[in-house]
């Protein structure tokens, strides 16, 4: 069987700077892949290549067996299947929480008003924000905004959701509510590709962890391996540094 997502030696440069240097990885349905690495290591670029917000220079990306990097791929169709959650939430500022979720259902999926509303409410409830449906982004806390962002991605029934440092813009006390929702998703079987510095989440929810440095995968394996028995010095150094800064990863 095909993996759900396959990256096959993906290269990407911005000018002279090589951001991704031959990254390959496979993800199966239900996998939670956590990508960690120093800033500038190409993590966000990697995510943006998957839904083609960024175009790669070389290599191939397959979703469910379809080559998404093919020139004739309909990117809008691809993005229906690949949800994205942003570091800065990027909620539609002029739409209520509910409106943020229904926009894609109405204009991309072509749902009727009532149906879209019902489905959107389901997903707002799922992230615990049913009571904030009529609030505008400016009236929500950071954690609430990000949960709306997750509901917005979920509502499209994606095959895969990309999380681009979903808690990095949050005050520490608000991180928990977002990782909790993400953990629920993970245990519900959602396939997730997550870039994060939340090591507790990585240790507890990741099925596979990837350490990316200077555009290359240094090490990839179960989180315990990277945290506890890594044989690579770079991995160990990075993880001990990040753990000291971003909270204890001990179970």
């Amino acid at each position: 069987m095909n993996p759900l997502l396959r990256l096959d030696s993906v290269y990407k440069s911005y000018g002279d700077e090589e951001v991704l240097r031959g990254v390959s990885l496979d993800m199966e349905v239900g996998d939670v892949e956590v990508v960690v690495g120093p800033s500038g290591s190409g993590k966000s670029t990697l995510l943006r290549c998957v839904n083609r917000l960024t175009e790669i220079d070389d290599g191939d990306i397959y979703l469910d067996g379809d080559r998404v990097t093919a020139p004739d791929t309909d990117v809008n169709e691809l993005r229906r299947d690949v949800g994205m959650v942003f570091q800065d939430f990027n909620l539609f500022a002029h739409k209520t929480a509910l409106g943020n979720v229904t926009l894609g259902l109405r204009r991309v999926r072509g749902m009727g008003k009532v149906e879209a509303r019902e489905k959107a409410m389901e997903h707002l409830d799922q992230v615990g924000l049913g009571d904030q449906a009529d609030s505008y982004p400016a009236e929500l806390s950071g954690g609430q905004k990000q949960r709306v962002g997750i509901a917005r991605a979920l509502a499209m029934d994606p095959k895969l959701i990309l999380f681009d440092e979903p808690t990095s813009a949050l005050d520490p006390e608000l991180i928990g509510e977002v990782t909790e929702v993400m953990r629920d998703l993970a245990s519900g079987g959602m396939t997730m590709l997550v870039v994060t510095h939340e090591m507790t989440f990585a240790r507890e929810a990741a099925s596979t962890m990837t350490f990316l440095d200077q555009g290359e995968i240094v090490e990839r394996g179960p989180p315990e391996q990277l945290f506890d028995r890594s044989e690579r010095k770079r991995t160990r150094e990075f993880l001990s540094r990040i753990t000291a800064r971003h909270g204890d990863a001990q179970p």
């Binding site: 994205m84 942003f86 990027n90």
Partner: peptide
């Protein structure tokens, strides 16, 4: 970007 990301 967010609009594009949901498939618009």
């Amino acid at each position: 970007t967010a609009a594009r990301a949901i498939g618009l």
